[in-house]
Every structure is written in C-alpha cells, then in structure tokens.
Amino acid sequence: MSILEVNHLSVSFKQYTAGLKQSHHKVISDLNVNLEAGEILAVVGASGSGKSLLAHAILGILPANASVSGVMTYEGEELTPARQKALRGKEIALVPQSVNYLDPLMKVGKQVRTSVQTGDAVQAQRRVFERFRLGREVERMYPFQLSGGMARRTLLSTAMVSGAKVIIADEPTPGLDPVVIKEALSHFREFANQGCAVMLITHDIESALQIADKIAVFYAGTTVEIAKAEDFAGQGEAIRHPYSKALWRALPQNDFVPITGSQPHPSALPPGCLFAPRCAMATPECLQAQPEMRPLRDGMVRCIHAT
C-alpha cells in the first residue's frame, strides 16, 4: 500500500526581475513518485534537479513565493496545508540537507529531545547519540562546536527519535565516514522493515543501492526513470533512461567519464524532452513535446527511445 503518493506535482517560483516585473520559474514539472510501506525509495539525480524541493513540497515548507499544483496524498487522504502542518515532525519527519537547520542557540542534546513524542526524552536522545557514536559531551555542545559530520549525525538523531511513519532524508550521508554511513543506512532499513517508509534523497548512488528497494532518477525537475535497485549494475545495461546511464557511468568506480554540458536552468527549459540537448540518442521527435512517463521492463521511463 502506498503511504505517500505524489501525482503530477509542479512547483514554480515567482521572482521579481526588475521593478514590478515578475517571472515564473518552473522548478518541478509533472513529477510522480510513490512511497510504499516497508520500502526505501532512493531519489537520485543532478544537483539542482528539484530533489530537495520535492521534500519541502511534501512537508509544506516551501517559501512563500512558491506555487504548487498537483495532488499529494498521505494514507489515502489528500495532504492539505493544514494536514501537512499537523503531520510534520510527528508522522512525517525530515532530515534536512543543510546543517544550517540546527538552532544555533540551543545545545544539540536539547534540540534532539524536543522531537521525542513519547517516553523519556533524555534516554532516547542518549541512546541515539550512542548509536551514532556521538560522545556524552556532545549533547552539551552548540552547533558551531560540531564538525560537519557530527552536525549531520545530530540531524539524523532528531528524525530517528521522532517516531514518525515516514522519514524523508535529504542527503543525510555526505561528509560522514563509512562506519557512520553504514549505521545510518541500517537504521533506515530497520525502520522500513517495521512497516514505515523512507525517501532517501541522495547522490551517493553506491550507498543508496545497498539499502534501497527502488530508485527514482530526477533530471531538471522531473522523474526520468523509476527502476528497481538491481537494475543499477555492471555497465548499466538494465538502466532505461540515457541520463541514468550517463550518471551511472560517471561514478568513480565505473568509468568516471562525464557527459558534456549542464542541466538546463528553470528559466530556459528546452521545449521537448528536457535531456535532449545533452543526449546522444536525441532525434527531431524528442524536441516536439516532453515525453510522458511510460512503463518499461518493470519500471517507468520518460524517453521515447528507451528499450
């Protein structure tokens, strides 16, 4: 059963360019993802492809100049702004990407305790700190006294003690050493095995593959492929979309060879397929219209040439 469904989500930002002149930047377009109970969905893709914005849209914490369309449901009911407010931090928890999300004026132990909903908050905080190898002295420190990795483990702790049913983890692993990454990932796996759901937003495909059930690949604000984790193997023969293939090949453990160019800016999206300007397979039809997501070999792909 899907705990969380996102259908045809679009997000655009209103900006003032000069004086009262406004421009709208569409940063997410026609995006679909489902989170199933007991499952970990990894969301991978280019930086700036809208991965964090998806997380913020689900929680209803986008800035005021954003407008959202499409339908999101949680446990079968529509996620309205009021419901988002009631659920966030309780049923749906976020591990934010930036370590700037910590309160700079509160000791970190106390920050973690504020998100405990039932039971002894101090005990819960100490247990989770121990798990993440944060010493007893850390709970009395302020965020500026922590290293990058320690701050990230504090953010992880906050979500872990919340007792939420859905965890959305936005890049929880960068800057952490392998031991702590393993600990965090196994925590996510246990969490999912208890019937909860995890959305793991990351560009660390290697770590994601160790624990994820499904992989969603984002490019320029939309999903280009949804695949089973097993498809990402070898030379990437089982991968469907040309962008996903390029991403796989660019990993240091694979070929470490990049494709040229960069992801289009939201103010200058190409007319047809968003990846066409960088795609070796592109034909004139690709420039006609943005392809729809279609089922292919037990997954989904947004490409007319994918086989």
Binding site: E171, G175, H203
Partner: peptide, 17 residues
C-alpha cells in the same frame, strides 16, 4: 576539502577531469 561531495556524479566527474 570534500570539493565534490555535494554534487552529482556527472558534475563531479566534469570538475575533477
């Protein structure tokens, strides 16, 4: 110092190359 840690694999490979 973790120069490409926050970047996707393609951008990482581009910058390092």
């Amino acid at each position: 110092d973790e120069m490409t840690t926050m970047l996707d694999a393609i951008t990482q490979a581009q910058i390092w190359q």
